[in-house]
Amino acid sequence: MTFNLLIVDDSKTVRAVIKKALRMAGVPTNEVHEAANGQEALEVVADHWIDLILADINMPVMNGIEMIQRLFADDSTSSIPVIVVSSEGSTTRIDELKKSNVCGYVRKPFQPEELREALLAALGNPDE
């Protein structure tokens, strides 16, 4: 089983690092889409089947919190799980986000294995 993922981060470097980490961790992907902010992410989600979103919080145009709220408020996208990948260190904010469709949190900087564990917890282990 392979997954369609969406990486949302305003840093091209981070998007490349996440893609590399996904390969290193052996996460089975089909399509990996990219978006530089929440607005772009919503446009990608409208046009493609996405199994899971990896999203930063602090981004220009539309930040990750607003993007998550909009996804959760829309019946057609509310079930898409989101893993927050951020330098955010506030457990208060992360706990609040987990009341919506946020199912995991990986703090930057991260190791590939941390990303893999969060993904498998969200999607299930395809090897099992």
């Binding site: 602090n58 330098s87 260190g89 506030s90 457990t91 208060t92 904010r93």
Partner: peptide, 10 residues
């Protein structure tokens, strides 16, 4: 600490 909430600018 982790209770504080900060918003970072771009």
């Amino acid at each position: 600490g982790t209770e504080a909430i900060f918003d970072l600018t771009a």
